[in-house]
């Protein structure tokens, strides 16, 4: 349970939880600073444009402080379980890195080379990151999905995804 740290591993994990408190502090500080910089013209009543950011900022800062106290007293955030989640080993950062890489590649490429290609790269890259190694099957499914979805959006939904390099072919 969350309140009983057992092994040294959990204690080490616990230190990184202070990062969560720091994030909350930064977000809260940002909201307060941004809120204070607003002018409250044109608003009637005490709830001006400033109110919401400041209230949220104070909430976040307060939670950051309380979280630090909770952590110092040994509280731990419970990582979320699930059907396909195995919490017995730590986070696999290599997989995450590769996934984010494939994602970034798509975001950079989509408007340059078009979705049929960038989407295929995305799918191929993510399946690779997740451990699939049937390259022929992966490539075929990737191309089928990205070209298929392009047509689905174009013909079925009238949304034109970027066609990029394949202009005139599709």
């Amino acid at each position: 349970m969350s309140s009983t740290p057992t092994a040294t591993a959990t204690q080490k994990e616990g230190r990184s939880e202070y990062g969560v408190a720091l994030l909350l502090l930064v977000l809260g500080g940002w909201a307060i600073v941004d809120g204070l910089s607003l002018t409250d013209t044109a608003s009637r009543g005490p709830v001006s444009a400033k109110t919401m950011p400041i209230v949220v900022g104070v909430l976040l800062v307060a939670m950051a402080v309380l979280l630090v106290i909770d952590l110092a007293r040994g509280g731990r955030g419970e990582a979320e379980g699930g059907e396909d989640v195995d919490l017995s080993h730590g986070s696999d950062w290599r997989t995450i890195g590769l996934l984010v890489g494939a994602f970034v590649a798509n975001a950079l490429l989509i408007e340059r080379v078009g979705w049929p290609i960038s989407g295929a790269i995305l799918f191929f890259g993510t399946t690779f990151a997740l451990g699939a190694r049937h390259y022929v099957r992966m490539a075929l499914i990737s191309i089928l999905l990205s070209v298929g979805s392009w047509y689905l959006f174009f013909l079925g939904l009238d949304i034109k995804l970027p066609v990029g390099l394949l202009k005139g072919i599709l």
Binding site: V85, L87, D92, I96
Partner: peptide
Amino acid sequence: ALWVAAHLRR
């Protein structure tokens, strides 16, 4: 998806 990927059950 990222969360499950980082802890993929075998």
